[in-house]
Amino acid sequence: MRPAWSVVLLTTLLGAGQGLFLALYGADLSDAARGRASLAPVFVAAAAIGSLALAAAGLAASFLHLGRPERAWRSAAMWRTSWLAREVIALPLFMALVALYGVLHWLGQLQAALVAGALAAAVCVALFVCTGMIYACLKFLQEWHSPLTVLNFILLGCASGLTAATALAASLDPALETGYGVAALVALALAAASRAASLMRNAGLRPLSSLQTAIGVKHPHIAQKAQGAMGGSFNTREFFHGAGAARLAGVRWFFAAAAFVAPAALLALGLPSAAFLVQFAGLLAERWHFFAEARHPQNLYYQAIS
C-alpha cells in the first residue's frame, strides 16, 4: 500500500490525544481513590486541551484524505457494518466527552468530572478499537489482519500520550512527573514488544494469493506482459509505494530508534518534551511503515506495464 500522509497523521495524532486523555484520567482516578484532590487545575486543563487539540488535528488530517470532504457528514451512516463509520461516530463523541470532563474539572465539579471522564475513557478505548479494526478487518491484507494491529494502536497511543503527559507534568504539576515517566517507560516497553511481535509475524507471512489464483491458471511460470494501460492508473498509484526493501528496512530501524529507544533514554534523562517530539517523529515513520509493508493482492495484476 502507498502510505497516505493524511491517514498517517490522523492515526498518530489521534493516538497521542487518546493516550494523553487516558493518562490524565488515570492520574485523576488514582488521586480520587486516595481521597485527595491534589491535581493542579492548570495541569488538568492543559492536558485536556492538549488531548482535544491533538484529536482535532487528527480530525482535520482525516478530511484531507477525502475526495469529497463536504460530504463527510454522510460517513456515520453505515455504523452497523463499517468500522470507519464507527470511528466517525466515536471520534467526535470522545472529543465532546473530554471537553465536558475538562470543563467540569475546571469548575471544581470533581465527582461529576470523574463520571464524564469514565465515559470518555470508555469511548476512548472504543475509538482505539475502531481505528485498529479499520485495518485489521481487511482479511486479504494479511499484514494487518491480526489482533496485534489493534493492540499496537492502543499501546503506541498510550506510550505517546503518557510521554506527552510527562512533559506537561514536568512544567505544570511536578509531583506527577516521576509517576508519569515510569508509566511512559512501561507503556513504551509494552508497545515495543507488541510492535516487534507484529513485525516478526509479518516477516514470516506467506501470501495466500498468487498470480495463479489471480488469473486462475495452474502453471508455475506466469509473467505479465501488459496491464491494460501504459501510463499507470488508480491501481498503480494507490497501491504501490515504490520504496525498495532497503528503504523499508531503513525506516524500520529509524522508527525502532526514534519511537522506542531514544524516547526511553530521553525520559530516563528527564527530558520528556524532547522525548515526545522525537517519539512522535518515530511514530510517523512507524505508521508509514505499517502502511507500506501491507502487500495488497491487487498488485498481482499490476506487475508489468508492457
Binding site: 488469473i215 511460470h221 506482459k225
Partner: peptide
C-alpha cells in the same frame, strides 16, 4: 481493462 499474461516458458 484487458491484461495479457504469458504462461509457460
Amino acid at each position: 481493462r484487458v491484461q495479457t499474461f504469458e504462461v509457460g516458458q
